[in-house]
Amino acid sequence: MNSTDSTKTLASMLLAKSWKIALAESCTGGLVSATLTDLAGSSEWFERGYVTYSNDAKTECLGVPAELIDTFGAVSEQVAKAMAEGALQASGANVAISITGIAGPSGGSVEKPVGTVCFGWTIQSSSTENRVISKTMHFDGDRAAVREQAKDYALAEFIALLRN
Results as ranks from 00 to 15, higher is better:
residue 125 S to L: 10
residue 17 K to N: 10
residue 51 V to L: 14
residue 7 T to I: 09
residue 68 L to H: 01
residue 105 P to F: 10
residue 88 L to M: 12
residue 163 R to N: 14
residue 59 T to H: 12
residue 73 G to C: 09
residue 70 D to Y: 09
residue 42 S to H: 08
residue 117 V to C: 07
residue 49 G to T: 04
residue 111 E to G: 10
residue 139 F to V: 03
residue 74 A to S: 15
residue 52 T to W: 02
residue 161 L to W: 06
residue 56 D to H: 13
residue 73 G to F: 09
residue 87 A to G: 03
residue 99 I to M: 03
residue 102 I to D: 00
residue 43 S to N: 09
residue 131 R to V: 13
residue 18 S to Q: 15
residue 128 T to L: 15
residue 118 C to K: 00
residue 156 A to W: 02
residue 155 L to I: 10
residue 85 E to I: 14
residue 153 Y to K: 13
residue 80 A to G: 01
residue 88 L to K: 01
residue 71 T to R: 10
residue 94 N to S: 12
residue 86 G to D: 03
residue 139 F to H: 01
residue 136 T to K: 05
residue 48 R to A: 13
residue 126 S to D: 12
residue 9 T to F: 05
residue 108 G to T: 04
residue 136 T to P: 00
residue 147 R to S: 08
residue 70 D to K: 14
residue 91 S to N: 05
residue 64 V to W: 00
residue 137 M to K: 09
residue 75 V to S: 06
residue 79 V to F: 05
residue 54 S to Q: 15
residue 45 W to I: 03
residue 48 R to E: 14
residue 128 T to K: 13
residue 125 S to K: 04
residue 97 I to V: 13
residue 55 N to S: 08
residue 123 I to L: 13
residue 74 A to Y: 04
residue 22 A to M: 05
residue 124 Q to L: 11
residue 95 V to N: 02
residue 120 G to W: 00
residue 36 L to F: 10
residue 129 E to Y: 11
residue 31 L to F: 06
residue 57 A to E: 08
residue 15 L to Y: 11
residue 141 G to M: 03
residue 15 L to Q: 11
residue 44 E to F: 09
residue 54 S to A: 11
residue 91 S to D: 08
residue 66 A to K: 09
residue 92 G to S: 07
residue 42 S to N: 07
residue 33 S to K: 03
residue 146 V to D: 05
residue 81 K to G: 11
residue 155 L to T: 02
residue 106 S to K: 11
residue 87 A to S: 04
residue 24 A to S: 06
residue 92 G to T: 10
residue 111 E to Q: 10
residue 29 G to I: 12
residue 15 L to E: 14
residue 100 T to F: 04
residue 31 L to C: 08
residue 4 T to N: 11
residue 113 P to V: 01
residue 29 G to F: 09
residue 141 G to L: 02
residue 34 A to K: 09
residue 158 F to M: 11
residue 140 D to N: 09
residue 110 V to K: 15
residue 22 A to D: 04
residue 145 A to M: 13
residue 37 T to D: 08
residue 83 M to N: 02
residue 115 G to R: 03
residue 38 D to W: 04
residue 15 L to W: 08
residue 104 G to S: 02
residue 151 K to D: 07
residue 55 N to L: 11
residue 2 N to I: 14
residue 80 A to N: 00
residue 75 V to F: 06
residue 122 T to D: 08
residue 10 L to V: 06
residue 100 T to D: 02
residue 92 G to P: 00
residue 118 C to N: 01
residue 64 V to G: 00
residue 140 D to S: 14
residue 116 T to Q: 06
residue 18 S to W: 07
residue 25 E to Q: 04
residue 118 C to T: 02
residue 132 V to M: 10
residue 137 M to V: 14
residue 40 A to C: 10
residue 119 F to G: 01
residue 66 A to R: 14
residue 50 Y to Q: 04
residue 82 A to M: 05
residue 88 L to Q: 01
residue 117 V to Y: 02
